[in-house]
Design a protein around this nucleic acid. Structure first.
Lengths: 236, 236
DNA sequence: TGTACATCAGTGAACGCGCGTTCACTGATGTAC
DNA sequence: TGTACATCAGTGAACGCGCGTTCACTGATGTAC
């Protein structure tokens, strides 16, 4: 199983942290390779690292702490991917879209890691994971705020609410394609992400420009308005 | 644990199906009550029904078959909820929206049942479950087709692709709120579903009316176009 | 109507498995003298 | 420079647990005569 041929050397006095990092890497690798979070057991991780099972407990209090640390590192990577995608894009709306695309791309490239941090029961409500998740979310909210200042979204709207809606759109594409990979072909996946994200952003911007009046059948009207403003639809 | 006080009576000769139904109900109840699919073990279901563990195997070949049957009944209920919500709505776009709302509502009311059929690894690719899932999806695609005929969506577009995009939007709201219930308050959940679904539908209709030309920065332009057509945005 | 018998719904006890976790331990590393 | 010792990274074996599943069985039900 282990690719290292040499028998492990015991760490020097202060070097316990090295094994800790190795354990974390092994857990993430195992997650990615097996495509199942059931496979991430203390025993499997220990075997992968090439160390005895109880050794894990020298570095993590229990299994929850290990999984927590995995989530932490996944969140950090996801945040980095999004920020990198957005950093060179001047237009704030386009930057938001790039963030969304990077988000879905990360999810599709790391399906089990995405699954474990964002699709499983969120019983872990404390610890460093939340801090990192919050940091990532804050970056996104900041991006939304820039769009509000640019006039894409209403200035008096709640940026967090807008962010949550857009997040849901990206999450929808990501989660759906992860749970049901056979739904569309691989090249269609990116197109679907693009379409889902664009539609959510544009749709929200459009919604905010419609009268808030909840009269009986607003949807019937709006199609006429769209046709008048843009002409009839065509596949694209 | 069991609420029935009388000791179980053994089924008559041809009445084995009654226990089968009881087992199914118990499995779904257990899923809903414990809020965890780990709790749905053969043993727990048997105890809930008030029957010995091996009895389950008289009615289901193995655990997979039991879970499969649970999924089947959940899909049937979900489909029924959506069709009921749409059946009295004449406008096809509004009917589609009602289907989406019913979908999210069902998911939020039956989070673990939704989770098990639509958020877990889809290893079950055969059997009756797929038939039912496909039937449900077909109903939705039919709704999209009606919208195409009504001119909401492009007539030459692929109805399945449109359906998948809209499904992803609804799934995004549902899955996000199920995994992260503390994200918004309960009354905000419905508003979020409404917004997410409306934005996806409108956004897609809008996207299909924009030039397919992928020139450099289309997003910058479209906001100006929206402002010209509808005025500036306001929180809604 | 009465009795022997086949059927089959349901049972009690046990199987092997992998899991998280604990415990007393080993033995290389670094330090004090 | 050499030696006794404290430290602590890592180990082997075992714990109890709940799981899915199997097996030989029991005993009520219905049927044949």
């Amino acid at each position: 199983m282990t690719s290292t041929t040499a028998p492990r050397r015991r760490a020097r006095r202060g070097e316990g942290a090295a094994l800790r990092a190795e354990i974390l890497t092994a857990a993430r690798t195992l997650l990615a390779e097996t495509g199942s979070d059931d496979a991430v057991s203390i025993r499997a991780v220990a075997e992968r690292v090439g160390v005895s099972t109880p050794s894990i407990y020298l570095h993590f209090a229990d299994k929850d702490a290990l999984i927590d640390a995995v989530c932490e590192s996944v969140f950090a990577d996801l945040d980095a991917a999004m920020e990198q995608a957005a950093q060179t894009v001047p237009d704030p709306f386009e930057a938001l879209k790039q963030r969304g695309l990077a988000y879905v791309l990360f999810a599709l490239s790391n399906p089990e890691q995405y699954r474990i941090v964002l699709m499983s029961r969120a019983k872990r409500t404390d610890g460093a994971t939340d801090v990192l998740a919050h940091a990532m979310y804050q970056h996104f909210v900041d991006g939304v705020r820039l769009c509000q200042e640019a006039g894409v979204f209403a200035r008096d709207a709640d940026p967090v609410a807008i962010s949550t809606s857009l997040w849901a759109a990206a999450h929808g594409v990501a989660a759906l394609l992860i749970s049901h990979p056979g739904l569309v072909t691989e090249e269609q996946q990116l197109a679907m992400a693009d379409q889902g994200i664009s539609a959510a952003g544009l749709g929200l911007a459009l919604l905010q420009r419609l009268p808030a009046d909840p009269s009986a059948e607003p949807c019937e009207d709006i199609v006429g308005v769209l046709d008048a403003a843009f002409g009839p639809p065509s596949a694209g």
